[in-house]
Design a protein around this nucleic acid. Sequence first.
RNA 1: GGCCCCGUCGUCUAGCGGCCUAGGACUCUGGCUUCUCAAGCCAGCUACGAGGGUUCGAAUCCCUUCGGGGCUACCA
Length: 488
Amino acid sequence: MDEVTNKVRVRFAPSPTGDLHVGNIRTALFDWAYARHTGGSFIFRIEDTDTTRVTDEYIAAAIDTLRWLGLQWDEGPEVGGSYGPYLQSQRLDIYSDWAQKFLDQKDAYYCFCTSEELETRREAQKASNVAPGYDGQCRNLSADQIVAFRAEGRTAVIRMRMPDGHTTFVDQIRGEISFDHKYVPDFVLVRGDGSPLYTLAVAVDDIMMKVTHVLRGEDLLSSTPRQIRVYQAMDVAIENYPIFAHLPFVMGQDNAKLSKRNGEVSIAWYREAGYLPEAICNYLALLGWSPGDDVENISMQQLTELFTVERVNSSPARFDMKKLEAINGDKIRALTLDDFLDRALPFLIRAEVIEGTAAEIQLVQAALPIIQERITRLNEVPAMLKFLFVKDFVVEQDSVAKISDASSKQVLTRALDELAPLQEWSNTSIEAVLRSALIEELGLKPRIAFGAVRISVTGGPISPPLFESMELLGKSVCLARISQAIAL
RNA sequence: GGCCCCGUCGUCUAGCGGCCUAGGACUCUGGCUUCUCAAGCCAGCUACGAGGGUUCGAAUCCCUUCGGGGCUACCA
């Protein structure tokens, strides 16, 4: 807890070396949910200390993605906060001050070993079956030796001294975990060019930003002793260490980590494919966590109410696109008409089915109710409604044969005759007329008779409900299309 | 190799010593409904990795083993 406000402070601190992916977002979601559940603060921090891999575009994309998902942060980029700046690249002075302090305290030391030298020695260690890791060569350099190395033109990294002993901490998800320092070698805090590494920045920031809970991926579990070592060097009281909780992985179809090869990882992809942010969050929440009872379809609000770290699983979960789709379909069906319209419009415009005129929007609004329970992703909307807007209507190639036979012609001709004089053009009147003529009088099976009409009017064998579709299309267009089909 | 983490239906999970002949969801299969496609409803298939203990009793506790994963960078 923050000793002043007694409030929980959780941070999501991605390193934007690419688009945020499913695993990142699951972590962000849990961070956010935990902060909201406890009434604490959700802090968003950008870990951009690796300047060779992080780009401004990725940072902007990360901000955009989090916004889109509705994971509003209380402190961080664009919103500020009392412990900023929240981009590590803007906190460089802070890190070098601490590094200097560690040097002065002899907790850290200059190391002049080159990458090549380190590499050769590591190989040797492996060959002789010794645990690879820094061997301590530069641990106790004299002032003269340092001068000599500098004279050689060598640059130095700043390395943290790992004392003998062990580090034990309680992970909220996994329980007590202990690491013998024999397996935690001295690690680099500052690069040869003076820039800080994650190992330094993450620990300094979590302390200085008064972070109380660190919920992050389990890949960082074994780096925890190093963070704790930095806390000690910073002279932080143990009760002010953040509480750690290492979240299980989200994995791909095979049991490797989720990656491009076995399922889409980029959240941007899901957004374009028409997944709803609340569906993504709902599904992701179920990966590694569950509300406990048999409820699965929950709102963001319910998630914040129900989420506790105690209920987070320790075992990895496989990402299942099928289940995401099922939840997405549920969420789409639950949308109000206005909301559905707002979300569907961009997809229709992007697919160039409509331009966005008032008349078009009005027709879309009228049509959405009949497709709402038929789609599972928003990007299916354009194909579903295309028949209502297409300028040069033609029957799909594969379907032409299905309405070219004599009996189909008879059905269509009869339908045209019955519909032409119809006064009231509504789905009920259209159905009544066609049913009585085609089914009762001609004695046809509904699927045969209506199938032919469907193809002639919508262009294909699969469409929204026929009579509603015809009502939306309007009388003159329907008659024209049926005539056109008869002439095929 | 070493260290660390993990192990219930195909998948996500419920289960925290007796309520479990293991429940739910997704998937799959069959059926109902039906103007196509969906949606909805009903039914069915399928799991405690293995072996030892502890206990009157174990999916639940302990040990071993096997399997999977992470880390082992001047990445995070």
